[in-house]
């Protein structure tokens, strides 16, 4: 779609309960503040690490649960309530199968409830604040990351700005050991205003967010966020198959992560990774995000630099 309908979007399946009404057209419009939107499927394992930071620094955290069967929604609610921040969390269900990135997505019409772009537009249409964070259910803020997210959230008030967060892969082997990848220099856009110029449209392998002219890109420092990848988990299940990221330059990062993941599961540790062992009694994810990364000597760099992998991808 080159032109975004002013009134919203209606899906092809006639599921009118899931038609999209843009939040800025609702009575009262948008309020100040920021909302982190997490579109998740079976992230119960990660949310106890992901949510606390977001709950502390965002005005609202919105979980859009897409057919989870591992208790994702309940874990999210319990995490927020345990922090005394239950009123900062909303959990909503999106009950349709969503196409996986790659060939499946490409074959899906944009206005289908199964389309990634429709799913994203519906998810962000539930936001009632002027600023939003597109966040993943496996991305954990560091101590410095929390401060940066809070700070840039309010400093971006009424600005056409995209906030780009560098993130680092953290391959979790056990509660005590993980492998940190500081070799990639990708900084994908994660913070966006909410408004008619900022809706999603369909791209080749996944969705993309529109942006108005003269948008400012603000790039945040490295060391603010890690992306969890469990070596005993299915970390590429949101892709149709490896063929979907096998050739295009857009997918170079995914190919690299695939090679790292497979090397680690085969017992080989790529030389650009840093092996981190947590002290007794501390989970390695807590150790990396609260202690290791915040206090690591700057500039952050890998033991050996991997080259040529800098593309933005979901």
């Amino acid at each position: 779609m080159s032109k975004v309908p002013v009134d919203g979007l209606q899906n092809l399946q006639g599921e009118h309960d899931y038609d999209i009404v843009w939040p800025w057209t609702r009575p009262g419009g948008l309020r100040n503040g920021s909302t982190a939107v997490l579109r998740v499927k079976n992230e119960a394992r990660s949310l106890p690490w992901v949510l606390p930071g977001l709950l502390r620094v965002c005005d609202k955290v919105l979980i859009v649960d897409n057919q989870s069967d591992d208790g994702t929604g309940e874990v999210a609610k319990r995490t927020a309530v345990d922090m005394g921040l239950g009123d900062h969390l909303d959990v909503v269900e999106y009950p349709f199968r969503v196409a996986r990135a790659g060939a499946e997505h490409l074959a899906e019409p944009e206005l289908s409830v199964h389309s990634l772009s429709y799913f994203y537009n519906w998810s962000f249409a539930q936001v009632d604040t002027a600023f939003s964070w597109k966040w993943d259910g496996d991305m954990v803020l560091t101590a410095e990351g929390e401060l940066a997210m809070a700070e840039f959230g309010w400093r971006s008030f009424r600005k056409d700005v995209i906030l780009k967060f560098p993130r680092h892969g953290l391959y979790v082997e056990s509660d005590r050991r993980a492998y940190l990848d500081l070799s990639l220099h990708n900084a994908e856009g994660w913070g966006f205003p909410i408004g008619p110029d900022w809706t999603y449209t369909k791209s080749f392998e996944w969705e993309v967010r529109r942006r108005p002219e003269n948008t400012v890109d603000a790039i945040l420092p490295r060391g603010l966020c890690v992306e969890l990848k469990y070596l005993d988990g299915d970390e590429f299940g949101h892709w149709t198959d490896p063929e979907s990221f096998a050739t295009s330059a857009r997918n170079a990062r995914k190919r690299y992560e695939w090679s790292v993941f497979n090397a680690l599961t085969n017992g080989e540790v790529p030389e650009e990774l840093i092996t981190i062992d947590a002290p007794e009694g501390t989970h390695v994810i807590d150790y990396v995000t609260k202690t290791w990364l915040p206090t690591a000597p700057r500039p952050l760099k890998p033991p050996v630099r991997a080259v040529g992998r800098t593309h933005d991808e979901p």
């Binding site: 492998y179 540790v269 790529p270 030389e271 990774l273 840093i274 092996t275 981190i276 062992d277 202690t291 290791w292 206090t295 690591a296 000597p297 033991p303």
Partner: peptide, 9 residues
């Protein structure tokens, strides 16, 4: 070859 990094260095 990976290394176990001493963050205090």
């Amino acid at each position: 070859m990976s290394r176990v990094c001493d963050r205090r260095v």
